[in-house]
């Protein structure tokens, strides 16, 4: 039972990270209907920027932990958002409204570019970061054989994720920006006729998605302590799986999907085999799609003839 609770904690932490990345996919898909293949690499860039940020904090001598964390978080979100903006501006905007596969290929190209850019600029070796946030809560009785720990870092990750998602839901449902975004999602032409600046809305979507991916990158840097230029691919793929699982285009779906993928991965690694955890994730995706082709919370696509 203790082991189970520990895996539950690990799974929820992992799921929070996937959920943050998945939101970027699902928003972009919702608004311009393309798979942003480079989003996983944006997350990777977020992780690298955070790593640079932490080292910079060390150089500047800022040792008060919450301040350092907060500064790096803001810095990383800001600079990664610039990457998100630039990718959209360069590779996707000129192709908007063109042939359907063109942005997809362009996105795959962009993903290769970003990956190799980081490899050339920072080297191919893995980058370690010593743990910064120490300690945690002991959840089991003192004499139990298996100790369940909930580290402060896991608490921080889940709290920040919940906070960001709440804020994000507020932005989408209550603010003028969110209204413009939902309008653009429903009908781009009509929205632009009614005075919504579609270009700006799409840019904002990419900026927001990239900022959330940067948060995920920062958390992964802290949580695992090693990153390299290739982490974006596999994480991006799982996050996209999460978005599809939850129903692509739906924000709560992305969060739910992320959580599920995180839990599946944690439990599968714990109880079956760690090598086949990716196989498990994709098999479950296939199973879900067979019975619910639009994902768990997705709206069925209405076909007009």
């Amino acid at each position: 039972m203790d082991y189970f609770i520990q895996q539950l904690i690990n799974g929820v932490t992992l799921g929070a990270i996937y959920g943050l990345i998945a939101i970027g996919y699902t928003m972009v898909y919702g608004i311009i209907g393309m798979i942003n293949f480079a989003h996983g690499d944006i997350y990777m860039i977020g992780a690298f920027i955070s790593l640079v940020g932490f080292l910079l904090m060390g150089v500047l001598g800022i040792s008060y932990l919450p301040l350092a964390l907060f500064t790096v978080l803001l810095l990383s979100m800001l600079l990664t958002a610039v990457y998100g903006w630039a990718v959209e501006r360069i590779a996707y905007r000129p192709l908007r409204g063109s042939f359907k596969l063109a942005p997809l290929i362009s996105a795959i190209g962009m993903s290769i570019v970003l990956e190799n850019y980081v490899q050339v600029a920072q080297g191919a070796r893995v980058k370690p970061l010593p743990p910064i946030v120490h300690g945690g809560f002991e959840l089991s009785a003192a004499n139990a054989d298996y100790h369940v720990t909930l580290s402060y870092l896991q608490v921080v990750i889940v709290l920040v994720t919940v906070g960001l998602m709440a804020g994000f839901t507020y932005v989408i449902t209550r603010t003028p920006l969110g209204r413009a975004q939902r309008a653009t999602e429903q009908d781009m032409t009509m929205a632009s006729l009614l005075g919504v600046n579609v270009d700006r809305v799409v840019s904002t979507t990419f900026v927001l998605g990239a900022a959330l991916a940067a948060v995920a990158g920062l958390m992964v840097t802290l949580y695992y302590g090693v990153i390299d230029f290739y982490i974006g691919f596999i994480a991006g793929m799982k996050a996209f799986t999460a978005a599809v699982l939850g129903g692509i285009g739906s924000l709560p779906g992305a969060m739910l999907g992320g959580l599920l993928i995180g839990l599946i991965e944690a439990f599968w690694s714990a109880y079956f085999s760690i090598e086949y955890k990716d196989v498990a994730v994709f098999s479950i995706l296939v199973l879900v799609l067979i019975f619910r082709p639009t994902g768990l919370l997705g709206r069925p696509e209405i076909e007009k003839v």
Binding site: I90, A91, P94, L95, S98, F99, A102, P103, I105, S106, I108, G109, M110, S111, I112, V113, L114, E115, N116, Y117, Q119, V120, A124
Partner: peptide, 21 residues
């Protein structure tokens, strides 16, 4: 080596921008 893949990805983007179809 590394620059090759960088150029490869860049070429994919540029060709798509130039001739989307």
């Amino acid at each position: 080596q590394q620059y090759r893949m960088l150029a490869f990805g860049g070429a994919m983007v540029l060709i798509m921008l130039w001739r989307p179809r």
